[in-house]
Each structure stands twice: as C-alpha cells, then as structure tokens.
Amino acid sequence: MEDELSLKKQANKIRKNILKLVYKANSGHPGGSLSITDILTYLYFKELNVDPKNPKDENRDRFVLSKGHCAPALYSVLMEKGFFDETNIESFRQVDGILQGHPDMKHIPGVDMTTGSLGQGLSAACGMALSGKLDKKDYRVYCVMGDGEIEEGQVWEAAMSASHYKLDNLCVIVDNNNLQIDGEIGKVMSPYPIDQKFDSFGFNVVEIDGHNFKKIRDAFLEARTCKGKPTVIIAKTIKGKGVSFMENKAEWHGKAPNEEQYNQAIQELEEND
C-alpha cells in the first residue's frame, strides 16, 4: 500500500493531538480515542467525500461518532483535515471554547451529528442514509460505535431498521477494543458474538484488525460494493493504542494523563514518527 507510511504519520500526529487535548483540559477520554484513531484517519483522508471549505455540502458523505466521548479523536482528525485550526485545542472542554466534551453539530465545523448519550448515533445515521435513498443521492454514511455501546437496546432497533430499509449506503464500524469503564466487555455485559448478532440482523459482516490500514482499506472497499444490505466492520482494536502504559487498560477510558505521563506518551509517539 503506497500511502501507508503517510497514513501512519498522520495517525501518529492525530494521536499526539488527542493526548494534548485531554492533557490540556485535564479531562476527557484517551483510551477509546486512541483505539479508533487509525480508522478515523483512514476515513477522513481516504474514504469520506468531505470538504473542509464546504462542511455542509448536501452531497457530502456523513460521519457519526456514536461513541461521542471519543470526541478528542474526531476533533484531532477534523483539525488535521482543516475543518478548524489547532488553536482550538486550548479551549477543549473549556467554557469559552467551541469544542464541547462531546460532539456538537451546531457549533463545530465538520461534526455531522451531536452525540454523547450512547446508543443513539446509529439511529441518526440510519435517518441520514434513508434521506440519501429518498433523494437518490449517492453519498454514504459511516457510523463508529463502541463495543460496550452496543449493549444499548436502541442500537439493535437501529440495526433492525437499517437492514429492513436495505441501507447499503450505511457502513457501521464497531470499535472492538474489548474494554468498557467497568472492565472487559465480556465480563460486564457480553455483547459477543458480535459478528453473529449483526449477521442475524441482516448485515454484511467484515472483521478486521482495526490498526492495519490495508485491512481497513479492503473492508471499506467491500462495504462500498455490497448491495442490498448495510455493512458492519468489526474492528479489533487496542484501547489506548500507541501509548504503552495506556494500552489495554480500562482505567484510561476517561482519565487525563499528568505532566510526566503526557511527556512520556508524546515521547513514545515521536519515536514512532
């Protein structure tokens, strides 16, 4: 894959900005943000038809971050893409800033849906996909959900309706990092087997390593070519990916690093550059 290196570099920069956002605010969700970084990087730099100069273009592809607490990943990608500038980092989660703790479509350029209450994003994504079908537009809709999030009942209502209305313009990505706040998802409230659940709800199911750009590319290609049903990509990921002491640790779900931890994390990521 010719541009794998540049994607890796972009993802690395985005990871650094995620940490910076959370460190500066002394608040936020680094673990799940780092696990979806590679997927969001691929989406915004290779997959989505979006234009930072025209963020409300009615023909654009839509993106819904249903696991809204991972806003630092979305904001970092949107900044890298040029939807708004990096000076906004300083005011993330601050009373005078636009970057709310969870994505806010009314005030943040490039955010297509307000999210934060888990389990609701997929319904909105279905509504966007349904509108696209009704208007015979060829835009696509992407929705990233957490693996803990799919414990919510509304997710399965939405999944049922996505397949009922044959929303093949919809691609769902489940960030399967295997951890939620209280611990391993299998121990807290197991949503497994995730693949069989989506399969029985009428989805085309693809399972990949969510940190492998070639696999991510192939999965999105398959989603585009699959007709008559929505696709779900179950991405096996690592919570806290890229920062050694955060990897696979539920405690880093919603905690900010202190100065020493932040410096170490940045150093680790710079060594990857």
Partner: peptide
C-alpha cells in the same frame, strides 16, 4: 419504524439533518 419509538426519534433527527 415498527415498535421502535427510540429509534424512530433518532432516525427523524438524522433525516432532519439532511433537510427533511
């Protein structure tokens, strides 16, 4: 939307964001 009121409201929200 079948017997899915929560989903119905979410879908409506998504459609509204697309100009419906």
């Amino acid at each position: 939307m079948g017997i899915q009121e929560s989903n119905m409201i979410g879908v409506a929200s998504g459609m509204a964001s697309c100009g419906k």
